[in-house]
Nucleic acid binder design. Structure first.
Length: 776
DNA sequence: CAGCTATGCGCC
DNA sequence: AAAGGGCGCATAGCTG
């Protein structure tokens, strides 16, 4: 039977990608061993290759198969108060795969590999001569005993912690994760895997280029003879140590640099404590309702089918035109029938056959939602409807069941703790942070465990409050004061911008004392003029936070760009804090090369320091009249006066006149690099990163508090999914009241501690995610 | 065939 | 003149 049966995963490609980036061995087993060779051949190849390339290191590393040797090693670790750990497994899912062995290192010892579950590639049975897993785990347990909590370095700790937990060390932990350290030190790092980081920072980029990932590909590590594998495996904890030590030279509470002391604070108080939270959430997973999914798949596949039929019916109306086009263009890219899912084919249909205009200069052949929804055309409508449905079916309804863990019926996604350069988390396999919320059906596939209820809580106005706190730090407490007085920020901005009273800028009617007025149904009464003023102010503020342009804001507010500009100017006049924040952030990025969040997390924006134009010789050197003149030194720099000349010509130009100047320069061999786009991007990012990053700080801090709250733990409360400004959790039904109160309180307090202003959190309790609200 | 980019779209 | 920040993932379509 299949020797390398590996649990079915949603997407093997993704596993491989993630393994690559996290530097875990790719052990996704293919059904066919490549090159047609047998497993035996493959393993023999691995043996000889490792022997040949790493044989010289034979004495640098050891295999531990003796309990006394292991005990002694752990003794040393405890004495050193230090160990680095890396695990090898037969797959990438800690819930489904097994520990192969553990790699450890501490100073004064050799890098060591402790094989635990290696199996024979011939008999498929556990190989003799390995220590029993329980005995090994007992030794590791000594590291976490009260009074002897030893510092532990890892790389991508959440993986190893979860593997070790399931192998029996329930208290597995990590005090320094090189992956998180690397992100804090440079979120723009191109390669965030252990070997490349180590090579770059510890070996000056001069490290061995030999890579083993491809070598081991297709063979589970458990099947590699450990007397071969250790040469490869035992190297990792050593370089983990070196990398982490390098990072600690920078991320240090005693650094003479203020920015680094703050970054250390983030490492110690946010990122490292967050690791356990992520481990818990991934282990928890969320229950998936397969019965409901089956209902949905029937319902939506039917709708999808109908839409495809509808499309083909519509096409019949244009049959003549399409036939003519096919004949006139024998090499056309149209399938028969036309593929509704192909943007290329839809573009041909709309623009070449029907001769429509996209109305968008930037993408004249675009078929995006924005363009199609403006067309009054049955094809455009059908395409949009089809996309909506196919998205739901292909990405969610019919895909999610593949992600269910067969052992517990739950979906355990993966969280990338530093998924975004701003510090936000991301989620994948599957992504649980982009489950549709507009459509109420989809989220309901996710349900509470039996006897539990789902509980979600979100920060209200998290980002504007971050903005207010950042402005206050810079000496402007205009927004901070607004929040401290419990006022609605958007209404207050509108009031100042449009010279109206606060009451005149509220969404709903109030009496003279500021109390809401209600209609006969007990609903607040909308105040149209106030609502409009508030909406305008809100658009401007959020537009600033996202770096949005005036044209785009005008579109949103259904007014002209000119009008949008005027509104923006009024807002800036009435609330100078907003404009000041923009300017301060830009100055900060320009001078320092980075911006910071409320907690001191950095976002480096090197592009902001670029010159708008760069001048280089197109062929590496100025054109030479005498091609045989090899003696004269080529002048690498374009002469300053030439640069000045073109800069002057370029001043204030755009579009075609800009291109004209480029062409002119090109004629004399000068290549002008236009960095305008990059600078514009960085300009938008620099404002947004501070806000988004600060919000991420708060959410992470809140999650840590929630997860560490002893009371909540005892009440059976558990975090399931963070969605940027909100958390989804569950708790036993009988503890709803206590849990929801503690949830809101704990979250608020965590954020208030940083922002120093009142933060409200709204809790919703349901059986299904986004289902009917339950009252208690 | 795998692996890549482009396009498009779900969420906050 | 126009200008949306941050993600993950599906399909199409190209390339080696």
């Amino acid at each position: 039977m299949a020797l390398f049966e590996v649990p079915k995963r949603a997407n093997r490609l993704i596993d491989a990608k993630i393994a690559k980036s996290a530097n875990k061995k790719v052990t996704v087993a293919p059904t066919i061993v490549r090159g047609g060779g047998s497993i035996l051949d493959k393993i023999n190849l691995i043996k000889s290759t490792v022997e040949k390339n790493l044989g010289q290191y034979k004495d640098e590393y050891i295999v531990i198969t003796d309990i006394d040797v292991l005990t002694d090693y752990i003794d040393h670790a405890i004495k050193n108060n230090y160990i680095s750990i890396d695990t090898e497994t037969d797959g990438l899912d800690p819930l489904l795969n097994n520990l192969a062995g553990i790699c450890i290192y501490t100073h004064g010892q050799k890098g060591a590999y402790i094989p635990v579950n290696h199996i024979s590639y011939i008999t498929n049975e556990r190989v003799d001569g390995q220590l029993a897993q329980a005995d090994v785990m007992r030794q590791f347990q000594r590291l976490s005993e009260p009074g002897s909590v030893v510092d532990i370095d890892m790389f991508n700790a959440k993986f190893d912690i979860r593997v070790l937990r399931h192998a029996g060390w329930k208290d597995a932990y990590c005090t320094w994760d090189g992956y998180l350290g690397a992100n804090l030190l440079n979120e723009n790092e191109e390669h965030k895997n252990l070997k490349q980081l180590h090579n770059k920072y510890c070996l000056n980029g001069q490290g061995d280029a030999f890579r083993f990932d491809d070598l081991f590909k297709g063979i589970p590590f458990t099947m590699i003879p450990f007397n071969t594998g250790y040469l490869y495996a035992a190297h990792d904890p050593v370089i983990t140590t070196e990398l982490c030590e390098y990072q600690r030279k920078w991320l240090n509470p005693n650094s003479d640099r203020e920015d680094m002391r703050k970054l250390f604070w983030v490492m110690e108080n946010i990122e490292m404590p967050c690791v356990q939270v992520v481990c818990d959430m991934e282990d928890n997973g969320i229950l998936f309702d397969m019965n409901y999914q089956e209902e949905l798949t029937v319902k939506y596949n039917k709708l999808l089918e109908d839409e495809v039929k509808e499309f083909s019916d519509i096409l019949k109306m244009y049959d003549k035109e399409i036939t003519i086009y096919r004949k006139a263009n024998p090499n056309n890219k149209l399938d028969d029938p036309i593929n509704i899912a192909s943007p290329t084919q839809i573009a041909i249909l709309l623009y070449d056959i029907l001769g429509l205009d996209s109305g968008d200069k930037k993408s004249p052949r675009g078929t995006g939602e924005e363009i199609l929804s403006k067309m009054d055309n049955p094809i455009a409508k059908a395409v949009l409807k089809y996309r909506e449905l196919s998205k739901l079916v292909n990405t969610y309804i019919d895909k999610l069941p593949n992600c269910i863990n067969p052992n517990d019926g739950r979906i355990h996604c993966s969280f990338n703790q530093y998924g975004a350069k701003t510090g936000r988390m991301s989620s994948s396999e599957p992504n649980l942070q982009n489950i549709p919320s507009h459509n109420k059906d989809i989220r309901k596939m996710f349900v509470a465990s039996d006897g539990y209820v789902l509980m979600s809580s979100d920060f209200s106005q998290q980002e504007p409050k971050c903005l207010a706190a950042l402005c206050r730090k810079q000496g402007d407490s205009q927004m901070y004061d607004t929040f401290m007085r419990g006022k609605d920020l958007y209404s207050e901005i509108a009031s100042k911008a449009f010279n109206q009273t606060y009451r005149e800028c509220l969404e709903f009617m109030t009496d003279e004392d500021g109390n809401w007025l209600y209609d006969e149904h007990g609903e607040r009464i909308t105040y149209k003029a106030g609502k409009e003023r508030r909406t305008q102010a809100k658009s401007i503020l959020l537009g600033v936070l996202y770096g949005r342009g005036e044209a785009s804001i005008g579109e949103q507010l259904k007014c002209t760009t000119k009008k949008a500009h005027e509104i923006k100017e009024s807002v800036f006049r009435g609330f100078p804090a907003i404009k000041q924040f923009e300017q301060d952030s830009l100055d900060m990025a320009y001078e320092l090369g980075y911006v910071t969040t409320v907690c001191g997390r950095k976002r480096r924006l090197p592009d902001l320091q670029l010159d708008e134009f760069e001048f280089i010789w197109r062929d590496g050197a100025p054109p030479q009249d005498d091609l045989l003149d090899f003696d004269s030194e080529p002048d690498a720099e374009v002469p300053i006066d030439k640069q000045k000349y073109y800069l002057k010509r370029l001043k204030g130009t755009w579009g075609s006149s800009k291109r004209k100047v480029f062409d002119e320069a090109n004629k004399e061999g000068i290549w002008i690099v236009d960095n305008g786009g990059k600078i514009a991007d960085a300009t938008r990012q620099c404002v947004n990163s501070r806000i988004q990053g600060s919000a991420a700080d708060l959410t992470k801090l809140a999650m840590i508090e929630l997860n560490n709250n002893q009371e909540l733990k005892e009440l059976g409360f558990r975090l399931l999914i963070p969605v940027h400004d909100e958390v989804i959790a569950e708790c036993p039904i009988e503890n709803v009241k206590e849990c929801s109160k503690l949830l809101a309180e704990t979250m608020s307090k965590a954020a208030e501690k940083i922002l120093e202003m009142p933060i409200k959190c709204d809790v919703e309790i349901t059986r299904e995610w986004y289902g009917e609200e339950l009252k208690f």
